[in-house]
């Protein structure tokens, strides 16, 4: 059983002060995972890099030529030299602000609803069926209703984004609160903690890892929802509108630029959230390793 060897080797690396064997294995798994995380970002750049190189080699090098294929250099130069392409800066900024507005509202309501339903059985029986039924409605199916109620302006878009961000945060918060509530309920009761202290010191920090997972999902959905809303609702500015205009003008370079910016902003937002989450909760890494 040669493949059993690495596991045995890992156990030997456990520092001497770790007395408990299972504890040691847990910490070790954490170390391995941390090491892998350090390598990953570099590896992750390989695939997009190769695609960009292929694009450059084929199109810019004149090996392939078609109306739908524009040179990489032209696409990358557009935000600086092209008057229409320069719009992308403002568009990205507006989309980002719009997403942050919707995400904040949706996530805040999600945490409130999740805590309420996670703590109170009454709230759960009253609210749960409705919320779980609404969750089944595909996100984009809300657009006709929202535009009918709120018009084609900012209110409809932000409501739409908030709606998308709400559910992952709500579901994760509820689960996180319920899991932790059981463990720490007796402690809170024995220490006679007032409900406000209980909420601030016990329930919310306990659910924080789950809330952050929900927030990561919410960020993804909110970003998709932002561009979707801009594209589908159509008025105003933003990357979605930028894409729609570029398509109407058949500017392939600007469409590709829009897609690139979407991926970059979305990815950067995700990484930033991860970073903030990890530094904001020093004990989180330990929790994950369990």
């Amino acid at each position: 059983m040669a493949w059993a060897e690495p596991g045995a080797g890992e156990d030997r690396q456990v520092p001497a002060r770790v007395q408990n064997e299972s504890e040691g294995r847990r910490r070790n798994a954490g170390n391995v995972r941390a090491a892998r995380r350090r390598v990953l970002p570099w590896r992750g750049a390989v695939v997009p890099g190769v695609i960009l190189l292929l694009w450059f080699w084929a199109v810019d090098g004149g090996r392939v030529s078609h109306a739908l294929l524009v040179p990489l250099t032209q696409t990358l130069a557009a935000p600086w030299h092209d008057p229409a392409g320069q719009q992308i800066w403002a568009a990205a900024g507006i989309s980002l602000l719009r997403m942050l507005a919707g995400l904040s509202i949706g996530a805040l309501l999600g945490v409130v609803a999740g805590v309420a339903l996670g703590l109170s059985a009454t709230a759960r029986t009253v609210g749960s069926p409705t919320l779980h039924a609404l969750r089944q409605v595909a996100l984009f199916a809300w657009i006709p209703l929202l535009t009918a109620w709120l018009g084609n302006g900012e209110a409809a878009k932000i409501t739409f984004i908030a709606l998308g961000a709400f559910f992952p945060v709500f579901l994760n918060t509820e689960q996180g609160v319920r899991d932790r509530a059981v463990v720490y309920q007796e402690l809170s009761a024995a220490l006679l903690l007032p409900w406000r202290v209980r909420l601030r010191q016990v329930v919310l920090p306990g659910a924080l890892p789950a809330i952050l997972v929900g927030l990561e999902m919410a960020l993804l959905i909110a970003w998709i929802g932002t561009v979707g809303a801009e594209y589908a609702i159509g008025t105003g500015r933003g990357i979605g509108a930028f894409l729609a205009t570029s398509r109407d003008q058949f500017r392939m370079d600007l469409i590709l630029l829009g897609v690139l910016v979407l991926a970059l902003v979305g990815g950067a937002g995700f990484a930033a959230l991860r970073g903030v989450a990890r530094s904001a909760v020093p004990w989180l890494k330990q929790e994950e390793a369990k």
Binding site: Y184, E186, L191, L192, L193, V197, V202, V281
Partner: peptide, 23 residues
């Protein structure tokens, strides 16, 4: 005192102990 220490992982030892004086 519970079997598992049941300390809150997000509070320091001091804050965990102080929590019992909240009331």
């Amino acid at each position: 005192v519970f079997q598992d220490h049941r300390l809150l992982p997000w509070l320091t030892v001091e804050a965990n102990v102080g929590l019992a004086l909240t009331a």
